[in-house]
């Protein structure tokens, strides 16, 4: 099939690319834009490792196709920190609370938790578990992740 020209804003930068329609958004981010922070875990919409924000809403980028994002604005883990090096309170809290081990599910967790904190600045542990229920982590057993989100809520949410 013919390639399709798209224009997307990713982390504030506009990219114009030609891609085959079957390319998933996550493959586009990783392979076409070299934004490898977003990870591929299952490619069938279950594990949440590929979570990014599409027009401000966290979604699974393995079951959205890049052509569908034409004209949209996307935030990946690389775009959470405004300058790419100063940690947001949430990123800082994940480090502080040891809310990660291998780091593979972490980008998806951070995107999902960022969205939660925007909506609910002071979530309960249950609300955090609800919001992150679609992000599977095999390292942590989740407890230190929940603690990290709670710490971030205390130290400044997503600022």
């Amino acid at each position: 099939m013919n390639d399709y020209a798209i224009s997307v804003i990713v982390n504030g930068v506009t990219y114009e690319r030609r891609i085959p329609p079957r390319r998933s958004l996550v493959d586009f981010l990783r392979d076409d834009l070299a934004l490898t922070g977003t990870h591929v875990g299952c490619e069938h919409g279950i594990c949440g490792a590929c979570t990014v924000m599409l027009d401000g809403v966290p979604i699974r980028s393995c079951i959205v196709y890049a052509v569908q994002a034409d004209g949209a604005s996307i935030t990946t883990v690389e775009g959470l920190s405004p300058d790419g090096s100063t940690l947001t309170p949430l990123q800082d809290a994940f480090v502080e609370c040891h809310g990660l081990q291998c780091g593979f599910c972490t980008p998806g967790m951070l995107i999902a938790a960022t969205a939660l904190l925007r909506e609910k600045p002071d979530p309960s542990a249950d609300e955090i578990r609800d919001e992150l229920g679609g992000n599977i982590c095999r390292c942590t057993g989740y407890q230190q992740i929940v603690e990290a989100v709670q710490l971030a809520a205390r130290t400044g949410g997503t600022r």
Binding site: F94, V95, L100, T106
Partner: peptide, 9 residues
């Protein structure tokens, strides 16, 4: 952890 939370693993 720093590199992982920045998406730079």
């Amino acid at each position: 952890h720093r590199r992982f939370v920045l998406g730079r693993g």
